[in-house]
Design a protein around this nucleic acid. Structure first.
Lengths: 219, 219
DNA sequence: CTTATGCTTGACCATGTGGTCAAGATCAGC
DNA sequence: GCTGATCTTGACCACATGGTCAAGCATAAG
């Protein structure tokens, strides 16, 4: 039942279309996270989205096009998080905010993070171009910023590149490996309090590790 | 051509068998790492091992039994690495050795690490029992050791559990995400020198982060 | 030699799955 | 209510793939 169709020959999406595409994307993200690209079946995605399989192919012609959209989505979420790094020029605040934001994303978008991890793990067959363009230039920019901080004597001399990798791995670990973390937590997901403590620990160890004095001491 | 058969009704493995099982395991590890469990095909594994597909099923009846062996293998490699933590009672040396060893494993067994990551990512369908038994008890033991060090004032008070997660993620990242790391390194794998620097950075930031003074300062 | 055992392999099958199709439903605008 | 566009769906197909089978090889031992 196409409502609100602003179409005719133009193409602003109908409400039905928006709703279905959204439901499919959400279902796809969780199924891809659970089973990987090849392990996921379009039938399962359709079922989880509450529509028959041919309807899914009506909106996303191929499994790969759907997968690509899912990966692009999580990449965009991360790009926005990256802003939390750029918004200020103080190493303590920038690092704290960046790490915190990435931890929050791991908490709120575990499936997206897993899909991303899976994609990289298997050699980034679909988003190689993003790595070579957007990610590469963002990384180089942030390295320059950190190097400046080091030259200003505001933090210890560390290789900024490996610092960034460390931040990425520590934070995403809480999404990608959450099953292991849960298992080691008596098979119960981390509570909000536990997660807050984990976040605080990551921030604390890294900031101390790079010699940034924290004005607001460890909670 | 069965040689050295010490069999008859006994069952010490023939040389052919040993050789083939080894080749299959190695091929399987790389294919599973590239494509995940579902994405890997027994045909591809057989081809990479240089044997026809039915021969693979002669040694490993099902794809899942083969996969399980691959996962068990990498888990055992890690368990051995875990010893580097236990062999001494000095936080500086124990942490340095443990981190270094884990980094070395990421360098020497990237495929195994990827298979493990993939397994956890998808909810550990095959090795859940290892997580609940061996890994859980090892972790608890190491937490106790770290807590002791903290009480002795030999390192800052951090939550040992999240410190361990941090070490795991930072080190395994260099295997699991090596494609991303290579891409950000002008699409060239890290040289031995670069990897050594990365290792040094991880050790350096974490030891400083937990307030362990390094007797042998950053190289 | 013969025989038993271990190993190899081309041909084959059953199943699951990505994707198609064509007929039908629903709705906006006239 | 008619028309054209958008959306829905049961039935279907082509193909990949895990796994089997039975016949054939190689080797060690008698």
């Amino acid at each position: 039942m196409p409502t609100h169709a602003v179409n005719k020959n133009g193409n602003s999406k109908s409400a039905v279309r928006r709703h279905n595409e959204e439901a499919i994307l959400k279902a796809a993200e969780s199924v891809f996270a659970e089973s990987g690209f090849r392990g996921a079946t379009t039938g399962q995605i359709a079922e989880r989205a509450g529509i028959p399989k041919p309807n899914l192919h009506y909106y996303y012609p191929t499994k790969e096009s759907l997968y690509r959209r899912v990966v692009e989505n999580i990449f965009n979420v991360w790009l926005q998080a990256a802003n939390s790094f750029d918004d200020c020029d103080d190493p303590e605040e920038a690092l704290t905010r960046y790490i915190s934001t990435k931890m929050d994303i791991s908490r709120s978008h575990p499936n997206g993070s897993k899909v991303w991890a899976n994609e990289i793990l298997h050699g980034a067959p679909v988003i190689q171009d993003y790595l070579e363009t957007t990610l590469r230039s963002w990384t180089d920019g942030r390295i320059a910023v950190i190097e400046k901080w080091i030259q200003q004597g505001r933090m210890r001399p560390v290789n900024p590149r490996y610092l960034l990798y460390m931040i990425w791995s520590c934070t995403q670990h809480y999404a990608d490996f959450n099953h292991q973390i849960d298992t080691l937590n008596h098979s119960v997901p981390l509570s909000d309090e536990q997660f807050a403590e984990a976040k605080e620990q990551v921030v604390d160890i890294i900031l101390n590790g790079v010699g940034v004095v924290r004005s607001k001491p460890a909670a």
